[in-house]
Design a binder for these strands. Structure first.
Lengths: 357, 357
DNA sequence: ATGAAAGCGCTAACAA
DNA sequence: TTGTTAGCGCTTTCAT
């Protein structure tokens, strides 16, 4: 079917000028604006004949209702505000785009907000509140409890993506980062690795911390020494390069496996291990990442990694959005979705495994 | 299926939160709502003392003006709609995020729209028009002239990013793709390459076509045979793998240099050349990409490529946005920004060069 | 089944 | 300098 505003559908579009309003359509169709409104919103009380006539007229004039005027009355902006400040990791832009795509089918619109780092974030969140979003999705960013409270006060539900704040008035949809880390440690141990190491991402990111804690717990489970930890980096390729060099700087003990807070770090670590350190991967060192971004599968790195169930996470967010929007006083819910170990050539490992088998 | 504007889709949604309005602040501060409005919008006619008092009260109550009620009157939504359907190439998500960041400082808000591909694009653009954006930025997507006309009719300026439509009522900010391609051909020839090849991206993308045409023009300039062209792919890694294999399938002539429509393709071509074909890069084959995404610089690929001046392009878009928003009947302008050849290890080349020296 | 009228929250004349 | 009033474009009673 032709879209309602297809200019090649029906008579020539109205002479260029101001935007066509319900009033214009009403006048041309010989009805009241209330009837136009009813026609546009599928009000069942309208006569079928009138409805089609009005719709046709609207179509011909290229009319579509002003979403914000509508929102002023219905108290629903139809807007989902997404906040993301992670840009070096292609995982999150991809989530933004895919989630946007999905929300479009629910007649919801994405408004995008970003901040460079911590300090101006509250300023951005204030701006964000001005647009009265029906809902806020915060992607892998640390948000102050003050900001969370402000949202609760304005009755704006919040969904955290890959972030979990205990006791907060916000829903969460996360990959089970802790279990993912634990699984990696166990599998590495099972394949005979003895000296584990971990390269952190951003210190304040719970994704990094949870993966690390899970990794350490897993090492403890199987009786290995606590993994060496390289801290102080961010989620970048350069952090991976720097991390692996730092881990190998002391003569002993040298790790035989390194787990990284995300794939980008892992690729940096792998390239530096091979290039600068002259190590064989996985011969001398197994490297494992987290995310499973597209290029992890490329032969150039062939990276063993924990795949975040992106599709399932996005679907879960969409469901949570609907739940939260269509219930009166929704309790925040936390969802943890299991990751899956994707075994490739960068690590000496036996086999894949699920987080929650 | 319910029309895109159906608000009665499903059960009645809960009303969004009760928000503090200008009326509330006015009551508490003992002034009229007009005064509140003046205080919030820095109207110079208001008394300084009143202004601070009102602002304080507003602050205390957590008030911020409803952007859309304001827009209803001022005829300015403050919204920039961005349309992007390219998701496999990390270049564009990065542009979206960075441009958003920049617009925030101009008090403009980004609304994001995507479509999977051509057909449902008009439907998405219809939805997009409902939000009355002050301006539309279309990123590297092909738009129908009908859609462009619809925007012109509703007086919504359009800026095309890396797309140029001759005679269209839309501004353009592009990397000079044609000259970029030409430069690559010339530089390859200068370094002694004789049998050039090109791997296309999506057929309908002008970025791919312009780079190809420039490349062919450059080859002609220096008297080389017309490059072999591999068509029928998209902008993916897999297209690069398939492309290079197809180019090497016939025994003769075999290319000694391949230029790819973007970096992702180039990496696929390079990995397949080395892996599947057992070639040495750049010994047997030089590989050149386009974009200079972050990972092009990673040692794993060390890709020679044409760098798009992303920062300059984004700045240019911001300037164009301001120009278009603050003038009555702005003529669309086209800007072509020169790329720069970044010489790395994937190609036997003499030296870097600028598009417009 | 349709229309008239009352706003949603805000800004912009126009008065005072 | 401030308040009053009239809408922006739309939905939603309440009549008819």
């Amino acid at each position: 079917m032709a879209p309602p505003t297809d200019p090649n559908h029906g008579p020539a579009p109205r002479a260029a000028g101001v935007r066509v309003t319900a009033k214009d359509v009403a006048r041309e169709a010989g009805v009241s604006i209330a009837t136009v409104s009813r026609a546009m919103s599928n009000d069942p009380t309208i006569a079928e004949r009138t409805r089609t006539r009005v719709l046709q007229q609207a179509d011909a004039m290229g009319y579509s209702p002003n979403l914000f005027a509508r929102g002023l009355i219905t108290k629903r902006s139809g807007i989902v505000a997404m906040f993301a400040n992670n840009i070096t990791n292609p995982f999150y832009p991809e989530v933004v785009v895919k989630l946007t795509r999905q929300l479009q089918d629910l007649n919801l619109h994405t408004m995008l907000f970003t901040s460079d780092d911590g300090e101006d974030m509250d300023r951005v969140l204030t701006t964000l509140r001005q647009v009265n979003p029906d809902l806020v999705v915060i992607l892998a960013a640390t948000v102050t409890s003050g900001a969370l409270r402000a949202f609760r006060d304005s009755h704006t539900p919040v969904i955290l993506f890959n972030r979990y704040v205990k006791g907060a008035a916000a829903s969460s949809v996360c990959c089970d980062n802790f279990e993912g880390g634990r699984m990696v440690a166990r599998e590495l141990a099972r394949a005979g690795h003895r000296r584990l190491a971990f390269i952190e991402g951003l210190a304040m990111a719970s994704t990094s911390a949870d993966r690390r804690d899970g990794f350490m717990a897993g090492a403890a489970d199987v009786g290995l020494d606590p993994p060496m930890i390289h801290a102080g980096g961010d989620f970048s390729y350069e952090s991976g390069q720097a991390g692996i060099k730092a881990l190998f700087a002391p003569c002993e003990p040298r790790p035989d496996a390194v787990f990284c807070a995300n794939d980008i770090i892992a690729m940096g670590a792998m390239d530096a291990a091979r290039g600068d350190l002259g190590l064989s991967v996985p011969g001398d060192l197994s490297v494992v990442g987290f995310d499973d971004i597209a290029m992890a599968a490329w032969p150039s790195h062939d990276l063993t990694t924990v795949r975040q169930p992106m599709r399932a996470m996005i679907d879960r967010v969409a469901v949570e959005i609907q739940r939260v929007m269509y219930s009166d006083a929704p309790d925040p819910q936390a969802h943890f979705l299991p990751g899956r170990l994707v075994v490739r050539g960068s690590a000496r490992l036996a086999d894949g495994g699920d987080l929650h088998p």
